[in-house]
C-alpha cells in the first residue's frame, strides 16, 4: 500500500459499485489536496484513537489502582468470603455470588419471555399494534435504572412481599430456596427487577436478528403448508439461534453491571445464603455503596479490584455476545 496516495487507498478499499476510477484531475496539482486528505484522515484517526485511549487508560488505571488489593490477597480476593473493612479483610465472593445469582434469575426469566415477545411482534402482532409495542419496548430500554429502582422500592418490593413471596414461603418453605422470612428486599426481587430491565434489550436484539431471516425460506415453508408456529420453530428460531444466544449474553453482560435498581432493592448485605428471599449484595452495588467512603487505600483498592473483575467479565460477555450476533449477520 505504501507509495499510494490516501485517495488511491480509499478507492482500492471501497467496495462500492464502480470497479475502476480514473485518477482525479487535481491529483498532482501541487499535492495540495493529497496533503489535505492526509491531514483530514489523520485528524479523524486521532479522534477514533480516543476510543482506544479510553479503554486502554481504563484498563491501566483500574489495574494499577487495584494492584494493592491483588498483591495483598492474590486470588484469595476472589474466593474470600469475608468483607470486613475495619479489619482490612476483603474477600469478594459474596458480591460475586450476589451478582451471579441475580443475573441468572434475570436471564432465566427474561430470555424466554423476551424472545417470545420478539416473536409476537414480528409474527403475530396485528399491524396496528406492532409499532406501538416496539416503541414501548425501545422506550423502556432507555428508562434510567434509577427510575426502576424507585418503582422497585415503593411499588414492587411491597407487592412481592405480600404477594408472591408470601405464597412461596407459606407453601414451599421446606425448599431452602424459599425459606423465609421475607421482606420484599432480597435476591429474588433484585433478580426480577433486573429481568424487567433487560427484557426490552433481549427483545430488540432478538427482533432484529429474526428480521434477517431470509424471506424465501419463510415463504417456502408457508407454501408447503406449514403453520405459523412451524415456520417459527423450523425456520426463524434455528436461523436466529446464535443471535438469540448472543443477544442474551449481551443482556447478561448488562445485568451483571446494572447498579442503581439493584442497589435500591437487594438489601445490601454481603452474605451467601441459599434462600432467594435473603438479602444480598452485588459487585456493582458494593461499589456504589462504599466507594465514596472507603477509608483506607487498601479499601479503595479492593473496591477498584471489584470494578476490574466486573470490567473483565463484562468484556468477555460482550466479545462473546457480539461475535454470536455478528455470525448471524454474516451468515446471511
Amino acid at each position: 500500500m505504501a507509495g499510494q496516495s490516501p485517495r488511491r487507498q480509499w478507492w482500492a478499499g471501497r467496495q462500492m459499485g464502480i470497479a475502476a476510477i480514473p485518477p482525479m484531475p487535481q491529483r498532482r496539482v501541487g499535492g495540495m489536496n493529497v496533503r489535505g486528505d492526509a491531514i483530514f484522515r489523520s485528524v479523524l484517526a486521532v479522534f477514533a484513537a480516543i476510543i482506544l485511549v479510553i479503554i486502554g487508560l481504563m484498563l491501566v488505571m483500574v489495574v494499577t489502582q487495584s494492584s494493592e488489593a491483588w498483591r495483598k490477597f492474590g486470588l484469595g480476593f476472589i474466593t474470600g468470603t469475608e468483607w470486613a473493612p475495619p479489619f482490612s479483610k476483603f474477600g469478594a465472593l459474596p458480591y460475586i455470588y450476589g451478582t451471579v445469582i441475580t443475573s441468572v434469575i434475570a436471564l432465566m426469566l427474561a430470555a424466554p419471555i423476551g424472545v417470545g415477545c420478539a416473536v409476537f411482534i414480528i409474527e403475530f402482532a396485528p399491524a396496528w399494534l406492532r409499532s406501538p409495542v416496539s416503541f414501548m419496548v425501545e422506550l423502556l430500554a432507555a428508562v434510567p435504572s434509577v427510575v426502576f429502582g424507585l418503582w422497585g422500592i415503593f411499588v414492587f418490593a411491597p407487592w412481592m412481599r405480600n404477594g408472591p413471596d408470601k405464597f412461596l414461603v407459606s407453601h414451599f418453605s421446606f425448599i431452602p430456596l424459599f425459606k423465609g422470612p421475607t421482606f420484599g428486599l432480597g435476591v429474588l426481587s433484585a433478580g426480577i427487577i433486573l429481568a424487567i430491565i433487560i427484557v426490552p434489550y433481549i427483545t430488540s436484539v432478538t427482533r432484529e436478528v429474526m428480521l434477517l431471516t431470509p424471506t424465501n425460506q419463510r415463504e417456502g415453508m408457508l407454501a408447503l403448508g406449514a403453520t405459523r408456529w412451524e415456520v417459527i420453530r423450523y425456520v426463524i428460531l434455528p436461523f436466529a439461534r446464535s443471535g438469540i444466544v448472543g443477544g442474551s449474553i449481551l443482556a447478561l453482560g448488562r445485568a451483571l453491571g446494572e447498579t442503581m435498581a439493584v442497589t435500591m432493592i437487594i438489601g445490601n448485605r454481603a452474605q451467601i445464603k441459599p434462600s432467594l428471599f435473603a438479602q444480598g449484595a452485588t459487585m456493582s452495588s458494593v461499589i456504589a455503596n462504599e466507594f465514596a467512603e472507603a477509608a483506607t487505600t487498601l479499601y479503595t483498592s479492593s473496591l477498584i479490584a471489584i470494578a476490574l473483575l466486573l470490567l473483565v467479565v463484562a468484556l468477555i460477555m460482550n466479545v462473546l455476545g457480539r461475535l454470536l450476533v455478528w455470525s448471524v449477520a454474516r451468515s446471511r
Partner: peptide, 8 residues
Amino acid sequence: MASANRVV
C-alpha cells in the same frame, strides 16, 4: 446489535 444492521 448495530452491526447486524450493516447488512441491512
